[in-house]
Design a protein around this nucleic acid. Structure first.
Lengths: 244, 244
DNA sequence: CGCGTAATTGAATCATTTCAAATATCGTGG
DNA sequence: CCACGATATTTGAAATGATTCAATTACGCG
């Protein structure tokens, strides 16, 4: 359990590199102690400087409040994700990350990142790769926006299911997603009224099970087929620095 | 001219750091010679390994072919942009970057990136910042997708206009954008038929001037107002490594 | 010159929103 | 522990933004 938890924390890195003992040691020595937060608590607003966290347990969401006041979810975060990365370059970020469930976080200090860039170039480069992966996710999501909301929903659920598989094994903790209809609407970019109809339809078709606040994936394969997406696969470029 | 061209090449970095002489020297010493390409030529398919280019002159576009065969433009690239970054982590990228006008490129070898990570940590970190900036752009674009195509078009034109100002000064080379209606449709995510109506409408309202293949921004301020966006402003985090 | 691709236009259709009103659920203070 | 208010869900019907279809015209290239 302790092992798998530690492994989950660096799972995103593991899809690109096999850390050396020295690298592992550095990652393990990251200073700071874990923080707990309850559902709905705001984890980072972006405004308070360079607040970075590694999500260890639980679910979080990163959202922006659009010009018109309504909210839009940029990303759903699972254990292993870095929180606060997306907008730390913005002079006045308008996004905030909040907990969807009870969460455990580990704060990452700026000094840690600096040290990583100065002494563990391969780890630093891998951070870049993870960032680029997120960017690729966004690009894909962008192209889904030309499709119907039905297919976008299928695509979203498929990608989440895939991640759950990676985190928790094939059963993916029975693929339970702690999202209310309102959240899903904000992810997909449709109104709550319409997402309700879509979720209802998906439920009828046996693709998901839904009950207030909990969405369970019932048929990942058919969701994939409906979305038209292929499985997500990343690969490290050949130029990665030598490990320390 | 020579100065401004060199400056343009690293403009993205300059919004985060003031390079030291050693850093400048390293950037200047990047091996490889410039490449020319004509409009519509494909610059990188992503598939041929880690092909990276710095765009020195001209315009390019990065596009994916969606499941349904139709094309979607992910990003419009201007001088100073890195081409091929967006998808180099994908095992089988489905995107390609092509020239919109005649372009000049400088290939960036993997070895150069590696050396940067190993010997110029601050430059490497800045690359990460630029990547995060692109990601933030995508997030914003995503939230625009909840709005009407009219406001999305305004937002797109506003952001491009802003970049042209930064590149070419307040007049922004008179804000000429080398895009055909079809391209704009692929950026905004609507059909060519509908983009035609929108462009016609914008033209009537004096927001733009359009003629086949060329779109000129006529009133950047009103485009901004219509989009509801604020000016784009980035800032470097405090943890950047010390320069070499 | 002729052919393929891009732009234009109008009309019908469809996906999604908006509006409105009822019901359910949750957290909170008394 | 209950009542209350705030917020989420549900449902139907009307309105709208955007697509699709179809047919015509313009342009660029070999």
């Amino acid at each position: 359990m302790a092992y798998s938890r530690e492994r989950r924390a660096i799972l995103r890195l593991l899809s690109f590199i096999h850390p050396t003992p020295a690298e592992i040691e550095f990652l393990r020595s990251v200073p700071g102690h874990e923080v707990q937060a309850k559902a709905n608590e705001i984890l980072c607003t972006g405004e308070e400087g360079d607040a970075l966290y590694l999500l260890l347990d639980g679910w979080a969401a990163n959202a922006v409040i659009s010009v018109d006041g309504d909210e839009r979810i940029n990303a759903i975060n699972l254990p292993g994700d870095m929180l606060g990365m997306a907008s730390f370059v913005m002079a006045s970020p308008f996004d905030r990350t909040y907990a969807l469930t009870a969460v455990t976080l580990r704060p990452i200090q700026g000094a840690t990142l600096r040290k990583m860039f100065e002494q563990f170039p391969r780890l630093a480069a891998t951070i870049l790769l993870v960032a680029q992966e997120e960017r690729a996710v966004k690009n894909e999501w962008n192209s889904l926006h030309a499709l119907t909301a039905e297919r976008r929903l299928a695509g979203f659920l498929f990608r989440i299911g895939e991640r759950l598989e990676k985190l928790d094994g094939p059963s993916g903790s029975r693929m339970v997603i702690p999202l209310r209809q309102k959240h899903v609407a904000e992810v997909i970019g449709v109104t709550p009224v319409y997402i309700h109809r879509l979720i209802h339809q998906f439920q009828q078709e046996g693709l998901i099970d839904y009950e207030r606040g909990t969405l369970r994936i019932a048929d990942l394969d058919r969701l994939q087929a409906l979305s038209g997406l292929t499985r997500w696969q990343v690969v490290a470029p050949r130029w990665l620095p030598e490990p320390v």
